[in-house]
């Protein structure tokens, strides 16, 4: 092997060791490591629930409500990215991570519905008209339904947090 070849091999070896070390350093799913993302998502879904509730009571505007839902969607995306980065070598850890990601996905869906419903203007097409147009998304009058969806997603997250031992 030439000198240049040896140097190249050494660099590759160093990079491989570094990659291995980084992989080994990436957090594993546990009550401790999942606490922050789970709490962030919990806070996000609670804030969106409050925004939808306020919109139903006509206490907030469509713009402020949809901005809140959109912001919270961003928070859930960040938490999802964080949990996706966790390595789960054992079945138990993998199952915990996957359950958490599935719950986050349910919450993301609920938040998307909330955002759509909050964005729908006051004079949005009614349900009958929406059905005529083949739309299934929640309109402004679908807010109570969205609120239920958000609450059910919150309960799902709470149950999972309890199961995982997150206070």
């Amino acid at each position: 092997m030439t000198r240049q070849g040896r140097r190249l091999a050494a660099i590759f070896l160093a990079l491989a060791v570094l990659a291995g070390a980084l992989a080994a350093c990436s957090p594993r799913p546990s009550a401790d490591t999942l606490e922050k993302p789970a709490k962030d998502v919990f806070a996000a879904v609670q804030a969106a629930t409050l925004a939808v509730d306020l919109r139903i009571k006509d206490s907030t505007t469509a713009a402020a409500g949809s901005t809140a839902a959109d912001d919270m969607l961003g928070e859930v995306e960040s938490a999802t990215d964080e949990v996706e980065g966790f390595t789960a070598p054992t079945e138990k850890e993998k199952s915990l991570r996957d359950d958490m990601l599935a719950t986050f996905a349910t919450i993301s869906r609920a938040l998307l519905h909330a955002r759509d419903a909050l964005t729908a203007p006051g004079n949005a097409p009614g349900k009958a008209e929406q059905q005529e147009q083949g739309q299934s998304g929640a309109g402004a009058d679908g807010l109570p339904e969205v609120l239920g969806e958000l609450r059910s997603a919150t309960d799902q997250l709470k149950a999972l947090m309890t199961k995982a031992g997150i206070q």
């Binding site: 709490k39 409050l50 901005t67 912001d71 919270m72």
Partner: peptide, 9 residues
């Protein structure tokens, strides 16, 4: 409500 502020909304 367990909401820690991260956004202006």
């Amino acid at each position: 409500a367990g909401i820690s502020v991260t956004t202006l909304s």
